[in-house]
Amino acid sequence: MSTETTSGMAYWKANVRLISISLVIWAVCSYGFGIILRPALSGIKIGGTDLGFWFAQQGSMIVFLVLIFFYAYKMNQLDRQFDVHED
């Protein structure tokens, strides 16, 4: 069976947790605000249309960008914390 160390398991758990949080935000901002929840947000107006339309055509992409860099930054921290970083 697995000989994975406790620290290795903890590192992977922390990574999976971070991914889960990130992907929830990813889904809420694209599938949620951009598509499914758009009717619920239709009351919020922005630049001649509703917030859902903005999320679908601009906002979601900005959120994706922020998420990737946030994840990369947090992972660099985790890599050091669990002493699995490169160099």
């Binding site: 990130s22 992907l23 979601s60 992409m61 994706f64 998420l67």
Partner: peptide, 15 residues
């Protein structure tokens, strides 16, 4: 198309 062809990069970066 906008969301579909960009959102995949989040999956690439994390998964």
């Amino acid at each position: 198309f906008l969301m579909g062809w960009t959102g995949g990069y989040v999956l690439l970066a994390m998964l």
